[in-house]
Lab assay of single mutants.
Amino acid sequence: MDPFVVLVLCLSCLLLLSIWRQSSGRGKLPPGPTPLPVIGNILQIDIKDVSKSLTNLSKIYGPVFTLYFGLERMVVLHGYEVVKEALIDLGEEFSGRGHFPLAERANRGFGIVFSNGKRWKEIRRFSLMTLRNFGMGKRSIEDRVQEEARCLVEELRKTKASPCDPTFILGCAPCNVICSIIFQKRFDYKDQQFLNLMEKLNENIRIVSTPWIQICNNFPTIIDYFPGTHNKLLKNLAFMESDILEKVKEHQESMDINNPRDFIDCFLIKMEKEKQNQQSEFTIENLVITAADLLGAGTETTSTTLRYALLLLLKHPEVTAKVQEEIERVIGRNRSPCMQDRGHMPYTDAVVHEVQRYIDLIPTSLPHAVTCDVKFRNYLIPKGTTILTSLTSVLHDNKEFPNPEMFDPRHFLDEGGNFKKSNYFMPFSAGKRICVGEGLARMELFLFLTFILQNFNLKSLIDPKDLDTTPVVNGFASVPPFYQLCFIPV
């Protein structure tokens, strides 16, 4: 058959498939802009700032609406009420993970971030239990974070109060905490193996944040037939998995079943207990991918939040002064901060919360999916439909947070200066898919920041009023603009 005829037939089939998918069930789905064949609503979305586009569309179609990214149908949730109703009140029905062709290629359905069903539930339950087990290797997770915080302070001392970009050092600290939990080992910041790991993690975040990856996920045929950065992403992930597998083999040879040292040991012990169960989800494949998931999810998000926190503290020296006064009063100079201190430091706690609220790190979270046909607000959402959640619409709700575009710790303080919780605080998402490392991340943010401010004054290279804190939105995360500062020993 003539190649031209084959091409026309293929394009015609794709067009018909697109029209059929977009028209099927439209009477039951939430409203939304009319999609174009094949490309859907992509032309109506700013790929570099999806969150802003969703906010604009919500003003037209309401808090629940339908979009098509290519052939992929998505239902968008915008605003606290619908997000709570879906992710919390109907948590089980909305607990699936959205379709990610690239991740599915890399992870093969294993791990904790992109798995679904029984596998996801069992691996998540085990990971939560293990991360909360403060007795691994007779050292609590808090001990590990405190140790890394001391190392971080010593690295900052080496800058000798000269101007520096904190990106690298602030990236090393949370990565080392995860390494300590998974591998029972922290690395020197100049260790070549550690630097290679950091390089792969950072490069992957840069790649994932590009519009090209959005295109690959919406048109998965590209993955096999086109060159691009997605190939580098898959190569980096394969490198990390190979490295983790080597460490798993080392653990198998040296493990003491009665004295687990780290996450890998705990997983291997669980595998041993379930070795007679042919349906067990505790396999080497799941261990390797879960460890890679924890490394990827637990490094860049925390380091970016820390980097943004220091920029905001530079911009608002009056806030920094209040935090340091609270540190001096509650902790002093002669001991290290600990998590028990947080309950006695409402202002510092409010500042950490406000940093996370203000920066809105992951504006749309990772997409969910419905696990069955769901009736939601008089609409029928078919099983498997991807759910896109606007966390921006919750964290920047102007009824809950007056002047949401302003950095103001009073958003989390009552009139008496006591810490005030808010149900709208969802930087880790909400419901059954809430970030498994939430507790660890909150511990790291509090301890790293208090250790830094206990030991250093922060000095800006320019007038604080002239510092730009506008986030650089890159399609996946909101990151701070480049800046330098000086760490002046107190």
Results as ranks from 00 to 15, higher is better:
367 P>A: 06
162 S>V: 11
123 I>V: 12
455 N>A: 08
87 L>W: 03
81 E>D: 14
312 L>P: 00
438 E>H: 08
94 F>L: 04
464 P>Q: 11
124 R>S: 05
84 K>W: 07
436 V>H: 01
260 P>V: 07
20 W>C: 15
488 I>A: 12
453 L>Y: 03
6 V>L: 14
155 E>L: 08
61 Y>K: 02
255 M>V: 13
425 F>P: 02
228 G>R: 06
178 I>T: 07
368 H>A: 02
241 E>Y: 07
83 V>G: 03
34 T>K: 13
473 V>H: 15
216 C>A: 11
451 F>S: 15
186 R>D: 02
108 R>F: 05
274 E>F: 08
237 L>F: 09
234 L>C: 09
248 V>I: 12
475 G>L: 12
46 D>E: 08
294 L>Q: 01
464 P>M: 11
260 P>G: 04
141 I>D: 07
275 K>D: 08
264 I>P: 00
186 R>N: 04
86 A>W: 05
384 G>T: 04
489 P>H: 05
222 I>S: 05
298 G>N: 03
411 H>I: 02
29 L>S: 07
310 L>K: 01
482 F>V: 15
413 L>G: 00
281 E>I: 14
51 S>H: 11
190 K>A: 11
466 D>F: 09
208 V>E: 07
443 M>Q: 10
119 R>P: 09
402 P>S: 13
219 F>V: 10
108 R>H: 11
92 E>C: 12
425 F>R: 01
217 N>Q: 14
401 F>D: 00
200 K>C: 12
303 S>W: 09
52 K>H: 15
228 G>D: 04
385 T>P: 00
476 F>P: 08
211 P>K: 10
408 D>H: 05
388 L>I: 13
449 L>I: 12
404 P>M: 04
252 Q>T: 08
344 H>T: 10
126 F>V: 03
153 V>S: 04
85 E>V: 05
393 S>T: 02
51 S>N: 13
170 L>D: 01
412 F>P: 00
26 R>C: 07
344 H>S: 15
186 R>A: 05
42 I>H: 04
89 D>F: 07
427 P>S: 07
82 V>Q: 05
266 C>K: 13
338 C>N: 05
4 F>Q: 02
387 I>H: 00
391 L>S: 01
403 N>K: 10
354 E>I: 02
375 K>S: 10
343 G>M: 10
82 V>W: 05
19 I>G: 11
472 V>L: 12
5 V>P: 11
74 M>R: 07
304 T>Y: 15
392 T>Y: 06
93 E>A: 13
189 Y>P: 08
455 N>V: 05
367 P>N: 06
132 R>T: 14
456 F>L: 04
225 Y>N: 10
7 L>I: 08
157 R>H: 13
67 L>H: 01
358 Y>A: 06
451 F>G: 15
383 K>G: 07
475 G>Q: 09
450 T>C: 08
340 Q>K: 07
162 S>A: 14
198 M>Q: 09
308 Y>N: 06
82 V>E: 07
438 E>V: 06
253 E>Q: 14
309 A>Y: 01
382 P>C: 03
314 L>V: 11
95 S>H: 07
55 T>L: 10
415 E>A: 13
244 I>F: 09
244 I>A: 03
228 G>C: 05
182 I>H: 00
72 E>C: 05
6 V>F: 15
27 G>Y: 11
289 I>K: 15
6 V>M: 13
107 N>R: 08
301 T>H: 05
330 V>A: 06
79 G>C: 00
241 E>V: 11
421 K>Q: 13
219 F>N: 06
355 V>S: 03
34 T>F: 09
439 G>C: 11
384 G>I: 00
383 K>Q: 10
437 G>N: 02
14 L>V: 11
448 F>P: 04
191 D>V: 03
360 D>T: 09
43 L>R: 08
169 I>P: 08
337 P>S: 03
127 S>H: 03
417 G>F: 09
269 I>P: 00
150 R>V: 11
365 S>H: 02
93 E>F: 13
287 L>T: 04
227 P>D: 08
409 P>T: 05
111 G>A: 02
280 S>Q: 07
430 A>Y: 04
49 D>R: 11
204 N>V: 08
115 S>D: 03
235 K>R: 14
225 Y>E: 04
78 H>P: 01
327 I>F: 01
228 G>V: 04
185 K>H: 10
479 V>S: 15
216 C>T: 09
133 N>T: 12
149 A>F: 05
239 F>G: 14
169 I>F: 12
151 C>T: 09
384 G>A: 05
152 L>P: 00
193 Q>D: 11
346 P>E: 04
214 Q>V: 11
235 K>I: 08
298 G>D: 01
48 K>V: 07
80 Y>S: 05
410 R>V: 09
90 L>V: 09
185 K>R: 12
45 I>A: 04
481 P>E: 07
71 L>C: 15
14 L>P: 01
385 T>Y: 02
446 F>H: 04
268 L>C: 06
154 E>D: 12
419 F>N: 00
249 K>M: 09
245 L>K: 09
373 D>V: 02
71 L>K: 15
47 I>P: 15
321 A>F: 12
349 D>T: 09
115 S>Y: 02
189 Y>V: 06
272 E>F: 10
177 V>Y: 02
307 R>V: 11
116 N>T: 10
313 L>K: 00
100 F>L: 14
254 S>H: 08
179 C>F: 09
394 V>Y: 02
20 W>F: 12
3 P>I: 12
231 N>E: 09
237 L>S: 09
188 D>I: 06
93 E>N: 13
1 M>T: 00
276 Q>D: 12
239 F>I: 15
122 E>H: 08
476 F>S: 06
394 V>M: 07
191 D>C: 09
431 G>Q: 02
451 F>T: 15
43 L>Y: 10
340 Q>R: 13
31 P>L: 06
118 K>F: 14
483 Y>M: 07
364 T>M: 14
360 D>S: 10
320 T>E: 13
444 E>P: 01
65 F>Q: 02
447 L>M: 13
293 D>P: 00
143 D>A: 12
181 I>M: 10
473 V>D: 15
292 A>Y: 15
490 V>L: 10
307 R>K: 15
43 L>P: 09
439 G>F: 09
318 E>Q: 14
444 E>G: 04
11 L>T: 15
450 T>A: 11
2 D>V: 13
340 Q>S: 13
343 G>V: 12
95 S>L: 05
122 E>M: 10
461 L>S: 15
456 F>V: 02
300 E>P: 12
214 Q>L: 10
92 E>G: 09
272 E>Y: 11
270 K>V: 09
14 L>Q: 00
227 P>R: 08
344 H>C: 10
472 V>S: 14
98 G>V: 08
118 K>A: 14
477 A>N: 08
378 N>Y: 04
225 Y>H: 13
386 T>C: 07
252 Q>M: 09
423 N>T: 13
105 R>I: 06
